[in-house]
Design a binder for these strands. Structure first.
Lengths: 210, 210
DNA sequence: GACTTAATATACATGATGTTCATTAGTTTA
DNA sequence: TAAACTAATGAACATCATGTATATTAAGTC
């Protein structure tokens, strides 16, 4: 299983330049108004070189997005009970949310612009799918496949929790990561398990309609 | 106060044609790859006519978005205690969420594409701001301006709830409004007040880490 | 029916795209 | 180290969407 296929260093260099240029440009203007011209100029490459590697702008954007997000998926994936690594699956799920925040922290520049409305819209939906899988996993591991016993349609429940997560991540990025990844992962887990009102300590002050 | 400034019927007609064409095109391809050419073709207008009313594509998109969302804001705004309308402010907030779902239901085609990743990214953030205002209003009216007493940073709390709302709305649209607006508004309120786990009836089955 | 203004038809300059090909420069390997 | 590959460059070209301008026609207003 050849993990790395010995890719020409010039290609790696070119790709890096193009992606760095993209991130730089995204700080100034939205992805729609960025041209291939501008990207290659900032990368100090010829426009022809761009077309040597990508079909068009969309292709380029999707490939660079997928590269980052596949790395994220790998990092966030719960460890398998492999041959050597003995069963350490205890707090697996909350760990995976911590890893999520840590990864985003390490790529904050990129995530901040890509999740803003200047970024590639597909990035948000891809992120949402990734988080949804983790949320789903957390639920399943807690309650099993119990589809029916719920008092609320399952997809509404999952969408509520998932989207809440994305929103908290965005507001964290917009605050320039005022809090630590560990703090955020903890608060997010509590928000979901106890509900926003109880976590805020407002359960007495608020009028519950039932 | 002249509410309507007697706008030429030809202009109204043109605008309607352009916007209808946009929605049609958005069902097939994403907003980025739609050209002014295509819009005017589908609208059966000249390209010159487009530039008689809008500076460019972005201007057109923003104006049509704002028109719809300003109407939404008006509908969702809690009724003032006006001269005539006596104080009926009882369940004001949950009513406003119901109105939100009803409005979206009436414009489902538009909201569905605009909130998807084919739509205008600014539409999502604008919607988020609108919902955030309502969420904020609901909290304030329940607990007052109590900034400090919270066990969690206020902006995290608000972001959590707000984004959860948007997510539920999106999943509802994607399911082609499987449930009624009243059902959705009710479930959403319960999800927030009781928390997702309690609403699902899972508080016994799940391991609470505290 | 006269006046006003929106829509059309047409043309034009500009700029980004995507493709091609000969040439130069950097990597690999024999 | 020289030969063989292959990536990057430079330049040219056709195509297409954009944005602007203007004279003409059609629709709405008074």
């Amino acid at each position: 299983m050849s993990k790395k296929a010995k890719v020409d260093p010039r290609i790696k260099r070119t790709n890096k330049y193009l992606r760095d240029a993209l991130v730089e440009l995204l700080k100034e203007k939205d992805v729609t108004s960025i041209t291939i011209q501008e990207i290659t100029e900032k990368a100090e490459l010829t426009r022809g070189t761009f077309y040597l590697h990508y079909q068009d702008k969309q292709d380029f954007l999707m490939q660079s997005m997928n590269e980052v997000l596949e790395e994220l998926i790998e990092k966030v994936k719960p460890k398998q009970n492999n041959e050597d690594s003995a069963a350490v699956e205890e707090n697996d799920e909350s760990v995976s949310f911590l890893k999520l925040f840590e990864f985003i922290y390490d790529h904050a520049d990129y995530f901040k612009v890509m999740l803003s409305d200047r970024g590639l819209p597909q990035f948000r939906s891809h992120m949402t799918e990734i988080v949804k899988k983790r949320v789903y996993g957390e639920l399943i591991s807690s309650i099993g496949e119990a589809e029916d016993g719920l008092d609320i349609p399952k997809d509404i429940l999952i969408s509520y929790i998932t989207s809440a997560h994305i929103g908290v991540i965005c507001s964290w990025l917009e605050s320039d990561m005022k809090f630590s990844p560990a703090f955020m992962a903890d608060k997010l887990t509590r928000l979901t398990l106890l509900g926003p009102i109880r976590v805020a300590g407002l359960e007495n002050k608020i009028k519950l309609p039932y």
